[in-house]
Design a protein around this nucleic acid. Structure first.
Length: 570
DNA sequence: ATAGGGTTAG
């Protein structure tokens, strides 16, 4: 005869108190705010044998004192005398995730390596955690190392792992090709996979690739979600593709894509930077939950299009709204002051950063101030400001100052600073162009020719200026002298016709400097204008009369309105 | 217990 043993009979009875104890510990952890409190809970957990309990461990990262929780969890790792159990991967995962969440990415990676060293096999949750940390560290070799492990352990077909792998490679310098390879070889794709890849392109400024991939996503019939739309919008913003941006917004409405704060901010940023400032402001005002990023987006947009005063009053409104300014919004605000000549206000705001908000100004803020003083013609003051800065000035700051020297006649000062810059960074081509420009302004043609020769000897080539234009959901890019377009003959005929029309309308080309050896920057301008002409001619050919034409150059767009359009012959 | 996103000086 066989009766169940006493122990077996008792077991169901024992489970209940254990569950109750677990619940008790969870609620204790919920309210845990200090290390001493955590230590008390720790001893209780040990007494109850719950120190490796998964729900309890998970709770750690959501306590108000995540850092204390990490210390506790890591101490468990080191003090554990138990045999390796299936909880060990869990324990490591908890620690890796916790460090990753507190921006200690290198430490998170350290624990991942410790895990491998101890012979603990990572599971399918480990890789998304550790790859997130790899993405933030941004080192390609590290990404490749983890990728190797993913393949070895056999998680390369897991969609979560694949998606984070795409993301991590996309965040590592030089890793975008690897990201694409992983993406192409994935057995299946969801909206997260597509967003990760599109977002990777967008982050790098490979915006045409981003938009192209979005089209492929639609062909593949994967439904984009709000995150996908954010990545596509940031590509539109970068390209200045207002029409595509408008289409994305209507898609969001039509498909009822949930509008997260991030998505609203992306839409507002797109309109603000592509030049439809009113639309951006309208949408911004209608937003129910505005974050500091929403305010920053409109302030930067206003600054960019010369509405400095509006930017300043938006900033004041933001403070009245109870939001505390951060370092980023100050960059937008100071650049607004700079672009609108608000020297006094800019100075006041700069000083208020530390005094009023305890924000230590960074190099970007100092850069804004140098720009503010320089544009206002206060070159000597700008130099003084740079010399007294508590941070080492960077090349951007020096170049801002040099440009100010050039346009405000401080040529000797500009020359000596530029020469110093070239000594520091002999392979940076824009420094040579600056020096060449200064020689031109001084009419030192021989010296200028010499600079050009030096550049040639060093194998430096100038990147040509280009103009982009958006027509029928396609983006066309033109450089000066471009003959790659199959309509180029018609385009050049149109350019000639435009010239004749402009003359007839009373336009006189500036000829005063034509006979001189015009300086490099003016030549550059002339060439840039040439690429603009090509783009405009192309648009005139392809659109009916009266259509506004919008051209885009390096994130700045200008509108050639209907009036000018009416000059169109025929 | 797992993944992708919005703002940043010239």
């Amino acid at each position: 005869m066989h009766f169940p043993s006493k122990a077996n009979l008792l077991r169901p009875v024992n489970i209940a108190p254990k569950r109750a104890a677990e619940q008790h510990c969870l609620s204790l952890l919920q309210t845990c705010t200090s290390l001493s409190h955590l230590t008390q809970i720790h001893s209780l957990l040990l007494k109850l044998g719950l120190q490796h309990n998964p729900p309890v461990l998970t709770k750690f990262t959501s306590t108000s004192s995540t850092l204390n929780a990490i210390h506790y969890a890591s101490s468990l790792l080191f003090s554990s005398n138990d045999n390796i159990t299936h909880y060990d991967a869990f324990l490591f995962n908890t620690v890796i995730r916790a460090y990753s969440q507190t921006s200690s990415h290198s430490t998170a990676v350290y624990y991942y390596k410790l895990m491998l060293k101890n012979g603990v096999l990572p599971n399918k949750f480990t890789y998304p955690f550790v790859l997130k940390a790899c993405a933030c560290v941004g080192r390609l070799s590290l990404g490749e190392q983890v990728h190797g492990s993913v393949i070895k352990v056999g998680f390369d077909n897991d969609i979560h792992v694949g998606n984070t792998l795409v993301h991590a490679y996309g965040c590592c310098g030089g890793g975008i090709g690897f990201a694409r390879k992983v993406f192409d070889e994935m057995p299946e794709w969801d909206s997260v996979s597509w967003s990760a890849m599109i977002g990777g392109y967008a982050r790098l400024g490979m915006s045409s690739e981003a938009v192209g991939l979005f089209r492929e996503m639609q062909v593949a019939r994967v439904r984009p979600d709000e995150v996908t739309m954010v990545t596509v919008l940031s590509a539109c913003t970068d390209l200045g593709a207002l029409e595509l941006g408008r289409w994305v917004e209507s898609y969001i409405e039509r498909e009822k894509v949930p509008k997260s704060v991030e998505l609203c901010n992306a839409v507002i940023g797109m309109y603000a930077k592509c030049g439809d400032v009113d639309k951006a402001l309208n949408l911004f005002k209608k937003m129910s939950e505005k974050t500091i990023v929403s305010w920053t987006s409109v302030i930067v947009g206003m600054a960019m299009h010369g509405h400095g005063l509006e930017a300043v009053s938006l900033f004041e409104e933001m403070k009245e709204d109870g939001l505390v300014p951060d370092d980023v919004v100050f960059i937008g605000l100071l650049s607004a002051c700079s672009h609108s000549g608000l020297v006094k206000e800019g100075r006041r705001y700069f000083n208020s950063m530390l005094e009023g908000f305890g924000i230590v100004p960074k190099i970007e803020h100092y850069g804004c101030m140098v720009d503010l003083l320089s544009r206002a013609g206060l070159v000597k003051e700008a130099l003084d400001f740079v010399q007294k800065m508590p941070i080492e000035p960077n090349q951007i700051i020096w170049r801002t100052l040099i440009a100010a020297c050039r346009s405000h006649g401080e040529l000797n000062l500009g020359e000596s600073i530029t020469k110093q810059l070239i000594r520091d960074e002999p392979m940076h081509e824009s420094n040579y162009i600056l020096l060449s420009n200064i020689y031109a302004k001084k009419s030192h043609w021989e010296k200028k020719t010499k600079i050009r020769e030096v550049m040639e000897k060093k194998g430096m080539r100038k990147i040509p200026g280009s103009t982009m234009i958006e027509l029928d959901n396609e983006i066309y890019e033109f450089v000066a002298g471009d003959k790659t377009h199959n309509l180029y003959k018609e385009i050049y005929e149109m350019v000639d016709e435009m010239g004749r029309e402009m003359k007839r309308a009373g336009y006189l080309p500036t000829t005063s400097e034509v006979l001189l050896d015009i300086d490099e920057e003016d030549k550059e301008d002339a060439l840039n204008r040439h690429s603009e002409k090509l783009a405009i001619a192309f648009a005139l050919l392809k659109t009916p009369p009266g259509t506004p034409i919008r051209i885009v150059k390096n994130l700045r767009s200008s509108i050639i309105g209907k009036q000018k359009r009416s000059e169109r012959p025929g």
